[in-house]
């Protein structure tokens, strides 16, 4: 098992290097300049001298390879540099948002798991009954409805219903408070995006659970278990469900990593100051330093999540680690 883990760890290095090269050079292909946007974005008169001063301050006047080395060496030594837009340390910028994104990702994942596994299991066990049809319709709706639209509907619904009920419209807070400072304010802000994204996430996982379980339920060893006279509940829980979890774990892992940086629109709908919103802002501002750092963080999250999924695979199916 340790050999397996070490092998997986070493594979991370070329992936990170490849991602660093790609993001560094691709970003520089996009037209635009952070200094132009900062200084002339409001329609001000800006002469070239001012632009040159700004570019020099940001190190954009240095040769491309020097810039790349500074970036990659900085990443390896955990010195991500400063945001070209705000001038603040990138670790500070990321730290502010990471906590929120992580909490939303965890809450959405929990929501998804709590919905997907029971519904997927029931749907498979009760295949082609009205329960199955209902669960399938519910999950297809989850895939079809974009989570940002659901988010907008949730906010509007809250505003309209609270005004109708109490005379004063209420909406979730629009600024983040850490959970240990004010749990109520924290949850009243984050529960809604967690539900909006968790629903879509659960829809995918429900369908995956159902199809994987249906496949397992047709296996010989399940038939054998039934022939032995084992209780159906025991067959499902102990023999079928665990063996059908491999694809479900993959989906949950990928979705979790996606939630860490990919909630671009949902974060804007709920005004969440998360990594997704920061991503969009950094790209729009041509803040190369921040975009590069963000990509590397998200790549690291994906790699780490995949690593955890691989370990889980090995735990769920011992054949994998011996292969």
């Amino acid at each position: 098992m340790w050999q397996y883990i070490l092998k997986r760890l070493f594979l991370m290095i070329p992936t990170l290097l490849g991602a660093a090269i790609l993001i560094f050079f691709l970003l520089r292909l996009i037209p635009g300049d952070v200094c132009e946007i900062k200084l002339a974005g409001a329609g001000l008169y800006v002469d070239q001298e001012q632009i040159d001063i700004c570019r020099k301050d940001l190190g954009l006047d240095k040769p491309m390879l020097v810039q790349f080395w500074n970036f990659f060496f900085g990443f390896l030594t955990f010195d991500l540099g400063k945001s070209m837009w705000t001038g603040k340390e990138i670790t500070f910028e990321l730290g502010l948002r990471f906590e929120l994104s992580l909490q939303v990702a965890i809450m959405a994942t929990l929501t998804a798991i709590l919905i997907a596994i029971p519904l997927g299991t029931i749907s498979a066990v009760k295949q082609n009954t009205w329960i199955d049809y209902f669960v399938r319709a519910f999950s297809i709706a989850g895939i079809a409805i974009p989570s940002f639209w659901l988010g907008i509907m949730i906010i509007l619904g809250l505003l309209i219903s609270t005004q109708a009920l109490f005379g004063t419209p209420w909406m979730p807070p629009i600024e983040y408070v850490p959970i240990w400072e004010d749990p109520l304010a924290n949850l009243s802000q984050l529960i809604w995006p967690a539900v909006a994204t968790g629903y879509r996430y659960s829809a995918v996982a429900t369908r995956m659970t159902r199809s994987a379980l249906l496949e397992v339920l047709r296996e010989d060893y399940i038939r054998t278990a039934r022939a032995k006279g084992l209780m159906e509940k025991l067959i499902i829980n102990r023999h079928a469900l665990k063996n059908s979890m491999l694809p479900v774990v993959t989906v949950i892992g990928i979705e979790f990593a996606f939630l860490m940086g990919g909630l671009v629109v949902t974060e804007q709908v709920f005004n969440l100051n998360g990594l997704g919103k920061l991503f969009v802002e950094s790209v729009l501002n041509q803040d190369f330093a921040l975009t590069q750092a963000l990509v590397m963080v998200v790549v690291s999250v994906f790699i780490f999540t995949n690593f955890v999924v691989d370990i889980l695979y090995a735990w769920l199916d011992p054949r994998i680690r011996y292969a």
Binding site: I155, L156, P169, M171, P173, I174, N271, N273
Partner: peptide, 21 residues
């Protein structure tokens, strides 16, 4: 005072409606 960043216009509008701003 508290100046709250809200890039989306729809959200700013709802924030006034919901008295968050």
């Amino acid at each position: 005072f508290k100046a709250i960043s809200a890039p989306k216009m729809a959200l700013r509008l709802q924030a006034i409606r919901g008295d968050r701003a």
